[in-house]
Write a protein that binds this DNA or RNA. Structure first.
Lengths: 353, 353
DNA sequence: CTGAAAGCGCTTACAG
DNA sequence: CTGAAAGCGCTTACAG
C-alpha cells in the first residue's frame, strides 16, 4: 500500500492550491477561513497524513507542549509509580502534550544557574516534581523564585502539590475494622518515618480509634524500623510476639504490602487463619499486590494523582483571561482576544521580553 | 543573587564581540575557530548560562535528540519497570538526549497512516518499544517496513531487541541449588505462560537438572495459573500439598516474588524453616523485593537493560561512516567528513528528500 | 475573508 | 580561520 503523504504545510497548501497561511489558519481553528474551505483543508490534512512539526512550532511559540516528570537520581528519593506515569502521560496526551523523564542529581536541582534554564534544556513548559523524600530546601526555593511552573507530587508543600489522602485512608480502614467489631486494632509499619504518608496513615488510625473512645495501641515497628532492608528474619520475632498472648490484636492495619506479607507469614506460623482469627488491612498500590496478599486494602490510585497533577499544571499555564480569573491576561491573549481556546503562554516562563 | 544571563547565541555573540556563527562553531566543536577564542566562548557560555534552544536546533537538523519509551495503553501488556526507565533516561542524558513516554493504543500502533509520522508527532528520533505481551503482528511489520529506528524491550524479536537472560538465570539458580546438594528441586510459577521469560526460566531449570542426570519435576502451577488475580486462598492448597509427603522437594525455584511469598506462607504453616528445611530461590527485580522475602535471588538488572537498549538505538542512528562499518555513509556525513563525532541523521528517518 | 512579509533560534552550504 | 546569506517549518503581526 503506497500512500501519498505530505510533510509540511507548504506541500499541503500547494496540493490544494491555497496559501500556506490559509492552511495554518484552517488547521489551528483560527478565524479567517470559510467553512467549506476549512473543512476541505482539514480533511486533506488527515488524508495526506499531515502532522505539524512540533519542533518548528516550539521555536516560534516558545512553548514545547510538554511537561517533565522530574526524578532524583537517588532512586530512593523518587519512587516511580507506573500508574502515576500512565495518568500523567494520558492527561497530557489529551491536550496534545507529551511527558518527558528528567532524572536530575541534587547538584543540578539546587544549582542557581541551572534552574532558570531547566525548561528550555528539557524542552518542556513545566515540571511534575516527583521528589518525595529529603527534598532539598534549596530546590523548593529555586523553583518558587524562578517561577518555574511546577507541581509537587507525593509530597506536602504549601502549594502546588498533589498527594493521596493517606490520613483519610487510615481513618476509613480503621473505621471499617471497628465496624466489623474489632477493638484491639494495631498499626504496623516498617517504612521510613521521613515520608509523610506513614505519619498520616497512622494519624488517621489514631483519630478513628479515639473517636470510638479507644486508646490507640503502640505502633509496631521493628528494631531496625527505619531501614528499608529489614528482612523477614528480623521481622518474625516482632510480628510473632505481637500475635501471641491473650491481649493480641484481632486486627492489624499495615502501612504497606511488605508489612502485610510479613505479618501473614507470622500468622501462618502460629496457625492463625486470616481473616478468621486475624483481620489484616493494608495500603496497596496495584492490582498485582492483591495476588500476594488476600486482604482488605485501601487502594491508592496513582493514575488519578497523575491526572490531577497535570490538570493543576495546565491551570498554571493559562493566564487570567483564559481561565476567567483575576490575574492579568498575557500579551498574546490580549492580542487575539476571543479566538483563544487555551492560553498560548506558560505563566512565568517562556514569555519573550 | 542576580546573575547575568543570555538567552541565545546572538546575545552571547554580541556580548563577546564576535559573530553568531563563531559562537556556534565554538560551542559545537566545529573547526574554524582558534583555540584561545574557542575556550573564551565556551567559558562565557557557561558563565552566562547559555543553553541551546533544542527546538530550534531540531527544526533545522531534523533531529530531536530524544527517544520515546512506547507503552501500550493496556497496562498489562507493557510493564513499566522503574529501573528500566532510569537506565534508559541516564544513558540518553549521557548523550544530551531525552526520554519521552508515549502511551499508545493499538489502533494507532497498527495504523498504516500513523506509523510513518510517529517520530515527528512525538518529537523523537527513535522508539524503545516496551510492549511485552500479545504484540500485534502488524505493529512489528509496520515498524520494520517504515524503518522506524526501534529497539524492542523485554520481548524476543528476530532483531533489535533486548531482554534479560532468563534462561541463563534459571540455569544458574538451579545449578547453585544443585551445588548445595539439593536433588528434588521444583519449579513454581503463577505467571501467564504467554511471556517468554517464564518459559525460559523453566527451560534453564530443566537443562540444569538434565545436565545432572535428573528428571525435572512437573511444573507447579495453580489451577487458575494463567490468571494474574490468583489469590493466596487459591494457592495455599497447592503450595501446601507440594510441601507435604516424603517426596517433597527440598528446594524450589520460583518464577517471581509473588510465588516465593505464597510458598513461604505455606512453609510457615507447615513449620518448615527457610532455608533449613526448604531452600527457595527466586527471580526478583528490586532491592525492595528482598525485604519481603529473605531468599536467594537472581537479580534482574533492568537498569542495564535500559542502557543497552539505548546503546543499540544510538548505533542504529549512526550511518556506516560514523560507526566504521560497511553500510553507506549518509549524505550529511559525506559532506563534512572528518568533523563528525556522531552521525547527524537518524538512519531511515528524518532524512530530507 | 485573504495574502505578502518578517521573525523564532538555530544550522548549513558557499565564498572569501 | 572568518563571514554574509539562505534555509528549517512554523506563527504572528500588519495591510488590504
Amino acid at each position: 500500500v503506497i500512500q501519498q503523504t505530505v510533510k509540511n504545510q507548504d506541500e499541503l497548501a500547494r496540493y490544494l492550491g491555497v496559501t500556506r497561511l490559509t492552511v495554518h489558519r484552517a488547521l489551528n481553528g483560527q478565524p479567517g477561513v470559510g467553512q467549506a474551505k476549512r473543512q476541505k483543508i482539514v480533511q486533506a490534512a488527515r488524508d495526506l497524513g499531515y502532522r505539524p512539526n512540533a519542533a518548528a512550532r516550539a521555536t516560534v511559540t516558545g512553548r514545547f507542549n510538554a511537561a517533565a516528570l522530574v526524578l532524583s537520581t537517588q532512586s530512593g528519593r523518587s519512587t516511580l509509580f507506573p500508574g502515576l506515569v500512565a495518568g500523567a502521560a494520558d492527561a497530557l496526551a489529551a491536550h496534545d502534550m507529551h511527558l518527558s523523564i528528567a532524572r536530575l542529581p541534587d547538584e543540578k536541582l539546587t544549582d542557581e544557574g541551572y534552574m532558570p534554564r531547566v525548561l528550555r534544556e528539557w524542552t518542556v513548559d513545566g515540571l511534575l516534581i516527583n521528589y518525595n523524600q529529603e527534598i532539598p530546601d534549596r530546590l523548593v526555593e529555586l523553583v518558587q523564585r524562578h517561577r518555574i511552573p511546577s507541581i509537587w507530587i507525593n509530597s506536602k508543600q504549601p502549594a502546588d502539590c498533589v498527594y493521596p489522602d493517606d490520613f483519610g485512608g487510615g481513618l476509613q480502614a480503621t473505621e471499617r475494622l471497628l465496624a466489623l467489631g474489632h477493638r484491639r486494632i494495631a498499626f504496623l509499619s516498617f517504612s521510613r518515618p521521613q515520608h509523610y504518608s506513614g505519619a498520616d496513615r497512622l494519624g488517621g488510625y489514631e483519630q478513628a480509634m479515639r473517636a470510638m473512645g479507644l486508646t490507640p495501641l503502640p505502633v509496631l515497628r521493628p528494631a531496625r524500623g527505619n531501614k528499608l532492608d529489614a528482612t523477614g528474619d528480623d521481622l518474625r520475632p516482632l510480628t510473632s510476639e505481637v500475635l501471641q498472648g491473650s491481649e493480641r490484636p484481632t486486627a492489624v492495619l499495615t502501612n504497606g504490602v511488605r508489612e502485610a506479607v510479613a505479618l501473614m507469614h507470622a500468622a501462618a506460623w502460629l496457625h492463625l487463619e486470616v481473616p478468621r482469627d486475624l483481620s489484616i488491612a493494608s495500603f496497596a498500590e496495584s492490582v498485582e499486590d492483591d495476588a500476594v496478599v488476600p486482604l482488605s486494602k485501601m487502594r491508592i490510585t496513582r493514575t488519578d494523582l497523575g491526572r490531577l497533577a497535570v490538570k493543576m499544571l495546565l491551570e498554571k499555564w493559562s493566564c487570567g483571561l483564559c481561565r476567567g480569573r483575576a490575574s492579568p491576561p498575557c500579551s498574546r491573549c490580549l492580542s487575539r482576544r476571543g479566538a483563544v481556546a487555551r492560553c498560548p503562554v506558560p505563566a512565568g516562563a517562556g514569555r519573550r521580553t
